[in-house]
Design a protein around this nucleic acid. Sequence first.
RNA 1: UGGGGCGUCGCCAAGCGGUAAGGCAUUGGACUCUGACUCCAAUAUCCCAGGUUCGAAUCCUGGCGCCCCAGCCA
Length: 561
Amino acid sequence: MSNSEAKAPTNFIRNIIDEDLASGRHDKVITRFPPEPNGYLHIGHAKSICLNFGLARDFKGRCHLRMDDTNPEKESVEYAEAIKDLVHWLGYDWGEHLYYASDYYERLFRWAEELVEKGLAYVDDLTPEQMREFRGTLTEAGRPSPCRERSAAENLDLLRRMRAGDFPDGARTLRAKIDMASPNMNLRDPVIYRIQRHHHYRTGDAWCIYPMYDFAHPLSDALEGITHSLCTLEFEDHRPLYDWFIDNISVPGRPRQIEFARLSLGFTVMSKRKLLELVREGHVSGWDDPRMPTLVGLRRRGFTPAAIRTFCERIGVGKSDAWIDMSVLEDCLREDLNESAPRAMGVLSPLRVVITNFPEGQSEEFEAANHPQKPEMGSRRIPFSREIYVERDDFMEDPPKKFFRLAPGREVRLRYGYIIRCDEVVKDPESGEVTELRCSYDPDTLGANPKDGRKVKGTIHWVCAARSLACEVRQYDRLFSVPNPGTGGADYRAHLNPDSLSILTGCRVEPALGEVAPGSRFQFERLGYFCADSKDSAAGRPVFNRTVTLRDSWAKLGQGR
RNA sequence: UGGGGCGUCGCCAAGCGGUAAGGCAUUGGACUCUGACUCCAAUAUCCCAGGUUCGAAUCCUGGCGCCCCAGCCA
């Protein structure tokens, strides 16, 4: 990892860990990333991954990857495998410490029995509706279930029969016996086991009862020797319950739960439910659609793991609801890509230019550096001939002030090549559209400034007409047109940005780009960073995704495209 | 009107009684065969009101605002 990632900024969790280490409460740091394999990881998960694995790295501890798979209805191996793949892609390794909550089912069940034996849990016969009624409301205490005072022996028998399959789904639950009048709803005798005959992707049909998150999580943490169990803010209210289980069950460890604010990014949505809907309803092409905030989507878009790591570090960790601006992510990306991406030239919207004083049938090759600041990245040869393509946006018939590009009578430098002057503009007689520029070049300006001292301020990218390659380029923009989709009573789908994808087919790139490997990234000079699509790009027929544009101070002036 | 949190520059975020770090964004300017990169420069008195103190963003009191909780989801 690069130097810029070396010094992680401090945050309240690091402070807590420092104190725990100083006070002797813990002598090591073991964290865990506990995804439920019921969906694809997104940038919000990346924050948690970087936090947990980053802490473990910095404190010389370790971080476990644990599938929090306690709800067979929603989970699958596909998701679990994708999670492992993406955590690795992000640059983290759990070593030997891959765990599954489902591997703890037997142990968890024994702990449930322990609770029953201690008179701290009971089997309840209430229906879901009744349970809701008995639970009370935010301002009124709940009432005890008629089953609350069953004997330990009866409860133990009932619990075992629940496991044995003696009762239908949903007929009974195991509940912790805590306090039906607690102002904290989580303490009003929470359910810890439910009967649910559903095939589990790992345990198959071995179980017909499954533990709830609140029960399984703290115990799994304790079992693995987790010292700091980090989760998001909405679990703050669950901490007393988390501690209750740790306090009342003979577990081997004493993990500490700490909550932090989840990540919210502008102009996108992050909930698994919404992301799933976007996929199912076809608003995007799939989980890996380059417009999705999923890690598979970002990867396909061309994001680098390092950029995402830097981002997670830069946004910090706190307890206030944080809305991060997309520009922070984009800046991290540009910072990384500027360093690592080789330069190339591509013309998105080609405009034919004929160099009238350059001999027909003749051609030249120019030497072009692959990176302006990094000679070690080498160079390549770029073909040039009488006919070339330049970007349509780089010509204006009636240019405003400070337009340093082509215009009638104006001179501009061809990147790595000659200075040319626009002598004539050819238009379609019917539409009036500019179809071609006739220019002349100054033969003395290759790698040199004009001898007469005249200044040519603009440099534009271009490509040889004959020796360039046609290709498709997909330009992506934000998926939603408002910062917080779904506000103001509207359905978030109403805020989908209709222009989030535009496919350009007549693009031209320099010939060297014909055989690029899928996934490889380039900076198309003056345009942005692009990567060969991992699915649709093929040898001789490349397809590029625009990862992110370059900063464009011209566009900022409101003059640009 | 129950409980749990949060409130420092447009967006994040340090700060933990001693006189407001940093990043992104923004605005000037330098440099430039990418209007990129890089580089300089500019920009807050800390939700409000009282109080304690020589001194408070940091402590106390009272307000105000926002978020979360009534799944046999996680």
